[in-house]
Amino acid sequence: MSSVEHPLRKYLRPSVEATTFCPGCGDGTVLTSILQAIDELGMTMDDFVFVSGIGCAAWIISPNFNADVLHTTHGRPIAFATGIKLNLPEKKVMVVSGDGDLTAIGGNHLIHAARRNIEMVVICANNGIYGMTGGQVAPTTPREARTITTPYGSLENTFDISRMVQASGASFVARWTTYQPRQLTKSIKKAIQKKGFAFIEVISQCPVQFGAKTGAGSAVEMLEMYRKSSISVKKAVEMSPQEIEDKIVTGEFIDTAKPELCEEIARLKERIRGEG
C-alpha cells in the first residue's frame, strides 16, 4: 500500500516531502490543478520556466516543481518573467503568486504585462489577506472585514483583479474558486495554450489567517461559502450590481486573439535582417 504514488508526484522535486502550506490551505489545490493541466496537455516540466514572488502562494512552485524555478523578490515575478520570456520565447513562462504580491506591491508590472500582451500565464492565488506575515489587510480584503491591521474592519474598497487585468489588455482572463478545481484546470490548460497574456485568479481559502481573523471560519466553511456564493459570468451579466455585490463571479471573462509581443519583436528582427 505504501508503494502507491500520487500520479502528479512525478512533477515534484524528489527532495520535496510535503508542501509548507497550513492544513486546509487552498494553495495546495492550486498546485495540483496546475500539475493536472500540464499532465493533461501531455507537456513536460522542461517546457516551462516558473517564476514566483514572495508570500505563501509563491511557495506553490518553489521549491516543489521539478523545473526551472526562479523564486524572486516581493512583487516582481512578472518583471523577471518578462525578461525570461523575451529571451526564451519558445518556452512557456508561468508566474504563480499571491494577491498581495501581484496586485499590491507588484500591481504596476501586472498592468503593463497585460497591456503588452506578452505570452505568459499568471496564476494569482487570491486569499484576500497577507497570510505569511500574520493576517494584515490586503487590497483584496472585503470591505469591513476585520484583520490584524484593521481591528475595526477595513475602510477600503476591494480590488476586482480580473476586471483590472481585462481592462489592461490581457488575452485571457478567468476566475475560479478552489471549490471549482476541475474548471480551474480546464482554464489553466487554455491559458497555457494562449498566444498572449493569460491571467487566472483563484479565490483560495486561508483558514489560518483570513478564516480566523475575519470570522470566515475553517477551510470547509470557506469552501461551502464559495459553493454558495459563486455565480457564473453569464448569469452575472443579467444581475444588478446590488445583486452581485456579495457574490463571486466565476468563469472566463475574456478569451481573445490579438498581437503578441514576442511574435511582434521576432517579426521586427526578421524585417531588419532583410533590410540589412
Partner: peptide, 18 residues
C-alpha cells in the same frame, strides 16, 4: 488509498470528507 504521511489531518483540513 490514503497517503497518510502526506496528509495534514481531518481536524484542520477535512476537505476530502467535505
Amino acid at each position: 488509498y490514503i497517503l497518510r504521511e502526506a496528509c495534514k489531518g481531518v481536524v484542520d483540513c477535512d476537505i476530502c470528507r467535505f
